[in-house]
Nucleic acid binder design. Structure first.
Lengths: 200, 200
DNA sequence: GCATTTAGTGAACGCAACGTTCACTATTGA
DNA sequence: TCAATAGTGAACGTTGCGTTCACTAAATGC
């Protein structure tokens, strides 16, 4: 037994507790209103422990989001049902936005201008790149099956679906509903990428 | 003569000076770092004068952006050259993003969660709606000429161009270059909306 | 053209959150 | 068992917010 009643946690144990607290705050009050004191209190930790690990609020939240990100993001294998696959992945992304994770991204946007470029880059490669990879996979599979036009493999096109979802989420306070995802698919994505062949 | 050496400005005269100062700060330090003291100092005004007019920073910046917005946004008349018109309007929007105005939008995003819904709505109708109207006009004109597919008139499609530009601007720290605009057009917009007829 | 009202100034204030420091304490492992 | 390591919690100085107030310049009215 080394857990259960943590008289005083240290190391990763404590760190994870802080992350969880940060994410909970993020969900409750939104990025702009996350206070370090509140995170510390919620995690039952000293403020000094936070500042020992991360230089400021932005970095703490970034780290928390990253922590959450690594434990999510499963591999995805295209099924051959083009539209079905897209629905699945897009809904997954939409759902992810309606979490602390989404709030973290919103905050990141607001501070982009005053944030070190490395943070920006890191977040981009953590969040954007994996998503793009999934869509690339789906489209490549579709091209091989003849359901997707080869032009869909252009980076701007591959990035289109995540861009639509992200834009929607950022400019409203909520992530796209299933209906909105359907509209994106039926009026934009499918007409653009599909060859017209049924697939499956 | 009622201007020139403003011993002490009041009314609109002062208000405009404050707006200009706010926009200048916005451009220089970015939304997150605009300080009321700095705006006041820059406008050579008392801080009390700011708070007499607007309850907080968010509202001041919102007002300043609105002030700037009303003096821009010309009417646009489609020329019949579909791609040419789109290039023109999209570059105009991109250019607008690379100003204090764009920074204001970035800030607005960051605070969406903790901002009164009315502010959100107001900004949306001020910024999003006029843009959508321009694209709707262009597409309607194109449909009439047979260069644009009627499906392009669906709201999600009409909103696509501004969404691409905004998404790009928000997730990088800079607005799309002419090359990026070209890519949006050639790989996404034109293939999606065009009938294939030359136009003109 | 003088007196009154209105509007802006600038300094001071209390407050909240930041980020830091320090004396103290619990945990670890040698 | 004891030294080294890591976390606690309270206190502190700082910054920016939003407010207040005594003072002053401009506008208005008589």
């Amino acid at each position: 037994m080394t857990e259960s009643t943590p008289g005083r946690r240290r190391g990763d144990d404590l760190e994870h507790a802080i992350f969880d607290a940060a994410l909970a705050e993020l969900a409750e009050v939104g990025y702009a209103n996350v206070r370090m004191e509140a995170v510390a209190a919620r995690a039952k930790a000293g403020k000094a422990s936070l500042y020992k690990r991360w230089p400021d609020r932005a970095r703490l939240i970034q780290a928390a989001a990253r922590y959450k990100a690594t434990e999510v993001e499963p591999e995805f294998e295209p099924s051959g049902d083009l539209r079905g696959d897209l629905v699945k992945v897009m809904r997954h992304i939409a759902a992810q936005q309606a979490t602390p994770f989404g709030e973290a991204i919103r905050g990141w946007i607001g501070e982009l201008r005053s944030t070190p470029a490395e943070v920006t880059e890191e977040l981009r490669t953590r969040i954007e790149t994996p998503r793009i990879r999934i869509f690339a996979k789906i489209y490549e599979d579709g091209v091989a099956r003849g359901t997707v036009r080869p032009e869909a493999l252009h980076p701007r096109v591959v990035n289109l679906a995540p861009a639509l979802l992200t834009h929607y989420f950022l400019t409203r306070a909520e992530s796209p509903t299933d209906e909105v995802v359907d509209e994106f698919l039926d009026h934009i994505l499918m007409p653009l990428i599909s060859t017209g062949e049924a697939g499956r």
